[in-house]
């Protein structure tokens, strides 16, 4: 993946198994978010393949798809700079996530057919369930932008979950959270994996969170994969220490 003359990502081979929590770490500008954008087809990588094996379905290549199709295939994401639908209520935000799993069309909406009403009711209930999962059921009717920061991050997760993904991409979910909020998030992510069997790939700078919940960790630096392995393996890796702390550390 190149931007102008800058090579943002080069040869990043990465896999996520079913119901696994994998973290990508690396210094700022290492290409972590770019990697997410490639997977979700916001950017088209110049070379390389992205292949998914959805549980119970045939494998598919994601190359050249539109972002919304990727979501439909079961990959949902959150954003580094929170991107909620600010003027909508909390509940509506999650309901938008149901879009690709529902079918009601214009005619249905205008005529209020029984099918549409049923679907709408299902959407409401499903979305409410998602809000309960992330602990926002009390704020259903608040405007999304009125929520505190940590709650907005959780709402983003709920919205992503509403698309019924098998792989959830979290871009710095703990950024800007205080320790107790981070602890709740830690618990939430584990719960999502256990209850729904969703695989999670996350980018995070909060090392405590990463070490706590990740099964495996990939380390990126300047667009290259410099290490991978379990948390213990990665912390001991000299390459990683160098990337984070610079050469001086050795001297």
């Amino acid at each position: 993946m190149d931007f102008g003359g800058l090579r943002a990502l080069e040869k990043v081979d990465l896999y996520v198994a079913e119901a696994e929590i994998v973290a990508i770490i690396g210094p700022n500008g290492a290409g972590k978010t770019t990697f997410f954008n490639c997977i979700t087809c916001v950017y088209q990588p110049h070379r390389g393949d992205m292949i998914i094996y959805p549980p119970g379905k045939a494998s598919k290549s994601l190359n050249g798809l539109k972002p919304n199709t990727v979501t439909e295939m079961g990959i949902a994401r959150t954003f580094q700079n929170i991107r909620l639908f600010k003027e909508m209520t909390v509940l509506e935000n999650v309901m938008v996530g149901r879009h690709c799993r529902t079918r009601a069309g214009i005619a249905g909406a205008i005529l209020c057919t029984r099918k549409t009403i049923r679907e709408e009711q299902e959407t409401l209930e499903f979305s409410y369930g998602m809000l309960r999962k992330v602990g926002l059921e009390k704020q259903t009717n608040e405007k999304a932008s009125d929520l505190p920061y940590g709650a907005q991050r959780r709402l983003e997760i709920a919205r992503a979950l509403a698309t019924e993904p098998f792989l959830l991409l979290l871009d710095e979910p703990a950024a800007g959270m205080n320790p107790s909020e981070t602890a709740e998030l830690d618990e939430l992510i584990s719960r999502i994996r256990e209850e729904d069997g969703i695989s999670i790939l996350l980018i995070e700078h909060d090392m405590k969170l990463v070490m706590n919940i990740s099964d495996r960790i990939y380390v990126l630096d300047y667009g290259h994969l410099i290490a991978e392995g379990t948390p213990q393996q990665v912390t001991g890796n000299p390459e990683v220490i160098k990337a984070y702390l610079g050469e001086c550390f050795d001297a």
């Binding site: 979700t40 916001v42 539109k66 972002p67 919304n68 979501t71 439909e72 949902a76 994401r77 954003f79 991107r83 909620l84 639908f85 600010k86 003027e87 909508m88 509506e92 309901m95 938008v96 996530g97 149901r98 879009h99 690709c100 799993r101 529902t102 009601a104 069309g105 214009i106 249905g108 909406a109 549409t116 679907e119 709408e120 959407t123 919205r159 992503a160 698309t163």
Partner: peptide, 22 residues
């Protein structure tokens, strides 16, 4: 309706709207 929410989502944030499968 579902369509109306998609419209508003589009208005609010195009990128997020697409990422939600719209």
């Amino acid at each position: 309706s579902r369509i109306g929410r998609a419209w508003i989502a589009l208005r609010e944030d195009e990128v997020a709207c697409q990422a939600m499968g719209i």
